[in-house]
Design a protein around this nucleic acid. Structure first.
Lengths: 341, 341
DNA sequence: TTGTAGGCGTTATCAC
DNA sequence: GTGATAACGCCTACAA
């Protein structure tokens, strides 16, 4: 058996291997690859050719370790399947990868302890930055981040007490505006449905916004009009049935979550309750389906993609040395009025 | 200003720091943490106490580098927002994290070249394994993986030519079965709608399955009954309108994608076309909403979570030394019959 | 433009 | 059970 192809070696190729073949020092190979202006045209060409021949791939682990700075950014959210978080991850990833960074991902459920453990894990990996889709953290989590001295962007809500940078819309403002919008359209017995406010600070803020608007509008707060349900279409269906049956005067409902709203809409259709004739429906997060429902649902368009993009950009700014202290970027929202109100 | 708290140090705490405080060598600290049986009860306790006091966090970068084996697994899919991929990521992450691994994530669109670049990037990070939500790859991508000698699981479809391990259901089989199912219910002018088969091998396999079933059933293949549309609800809506108007004899349609099916269902409602009276609808991927539509849609339940879980488990098996060569795990699917057929 | 020396924080290996 | 020492593959800093 002739050996036309080199025998398979177990160890991967290093810069040293390239250097030997090119008759240069290992440092010159390093420069040719990552600091090309500092190497003569000629040697660089030779080195690149050999790199290609050998199929050399730089060892990022060694690079990051040696230079004491990684190109990995960590991102933590409650649930990867969650549409806002998924959009954030995707758009952040696009920006970061183009700039040469990698993304480490983890989900924490809604547990702050779990988030803390994930943060610790990321920091032990020496991530050079983090995006947290959450604005409440354990004390130790905050301390870990401070100690690690890495840039962090919080999203999911405008952090009241940001660690450093926060990029979001305000759940409170958005809910408040939408409630006011419903009132401006003549509805005055407005229900509010969300996920558990005890577990989820975003739901809590939305509920607060709803309450604040009622107060401003001098509308009475009716405890029976405020519900918390389990996630899922079923939750939305049950909620609207319950509201209509237990509080027949209700004329509008503001669903604090997209899936809940779709469930509610479908339940109304099934029951033959006209929207908005019997009840108007408005909701958070303008997911695509809302425009196709019968009738299309009025909703809050959140800057999903932009949140990820801006978060990434701010991280990059900080990583390139810009020493901007506390940043709070309110990306706002938009009320999309459709025929459900 | 008295110094009650130690001055902030820029550099993070190392094993050496712990070792000095504990009056042991740095190696003993390493053992106390990661090989505890090899250290006396007494010294271990002392070391752990000091680790805690100092808030020492092991440097994973250094560990991975020093041991020449990382605890990071890479995962690449077409689109993080895609429901099947998101479920795969989430369930894989749960299994892997429990075993002490991290996840690096990237999305490739549908471009094989882009996937290749991402694979190269992951390999340069010395990921210890990969999950690819795709079964077609460039030659160089395959070569990179072979050369890196890391375990890889392919998902998204049962790979015809697996690199090593593949965990999925068969898109071909599933489409074939569903088409046969529709025929068994008495429908015999069955349309098929999917995303672009040129760009997406999964769509292609689904279309092939549909065609194969027609042939087995001796039903004629009508080119006008087979459509490819853009992703989104709008695509599904346009497709069903077009099919019904241009081929009125149609009595059922098999939507090769969940969003398309929802769009089609909503369009039928809007048009007043009874389902299944005017046209029956069946679809891929039993997303939650299908059960709540009017009428609920018959669909293929895919083992979404299980795909991620099993992929992760197989990787872990391989990483713990089990040298199983080619594995192809067909996780199957299930037809969920609802009133739309 | 190129090279040399030293170090990054850990693990592997061998000695005590 | 514990310690010393040499890697690991690259980058920083300085020298030629």
């Amino acid at each position: 058996m002739t050996e036309k192809t080199p025998t398979v070696t177990d160890k991967s190729i290093t810069m040293q291997d390239v250097a030997l073949r090119a008759n240069v020092s290992q440092m010159t190979v390093s420069r040719a690859l990552f600091d090309p202006e500092k190497v003569s045209e000629e040697t660089r060409a030779k080195i690149l050719r050999i790199v290609d021949e050998l199929g050399y791939v730089p060892n990022r682990l060694a690079r990051n370790f040696g230079s004491n700075r990684s190109n990995v950014i960590g991102i933590i959210g409650p649930d990867i399947k969650n549409s806002i978080f998924a959009a954030t991850v995707q758009s952040a990833e696009e920006v970061l990868r183009r700039a040469g960074y990698e993304l480490m991902i983890a989900h924490s459920g809604l547990s702050l302890e779990s988030e803390e453990a994930l943060i610790a894990s990321f920091i032990s990996h020496r991530v050079c930055g983090m995006i947290l889709h959450n604005t409440s953290h354990t004390d130790r989590a905050r301390q870990l981040i401070r100690q690690a001295q890495i840039p962090v962007v919080e999203t999911g809500d405008l952090a009241a007490n940001p660690i450093e940078m926060t990029v979001s819309y305000s759940n409170f403002d958005a809910a408040r505006e939408m409630t006011r919008f419903l009132a401006s359209r003549g509805y005055n017995v407005i229900g509010f449905v969300s996920l558990s406010t005890a577990e989820n600070s975003r739901s809590r803020e939305r509920q607060r916004g709803y309450c604040a608007a009622l107060e401003e509008l001098s509308l009475p707060y009716e405890p029976q009009l405020v519900m918390e349900v389990e996630a899922g279409y079923e939750g939305g269906r049950k909620a609207i049935s319950h509201l209509i049956e237990s509080f027949p005067r209700i004329d509008a409902v503001f669903m604090g979550g997209d899936v809940l709203a779709v469930g509610a809409s479908l339940e109304c259709q099934r029951r033959g309750w006209p929207i908005p004739g019997r009840i108007a429906i408005a909701t958070f997060d303008d997911i695509d389906i809302l425009a196709h429902l019968l009738p299309p649902l009025t909703s809050l368009r959140l800057p999903r993609e932009k949140i990820g993009r801006r978060s990434a950009e701010l991280l990059l700014d900080r990583l390139s040395g810009q020493d901007v202290a506390l940043i709070s970027e309110n990306l706002g929202f938009e009320i999309i009025e459709r025929s459900s109100t």
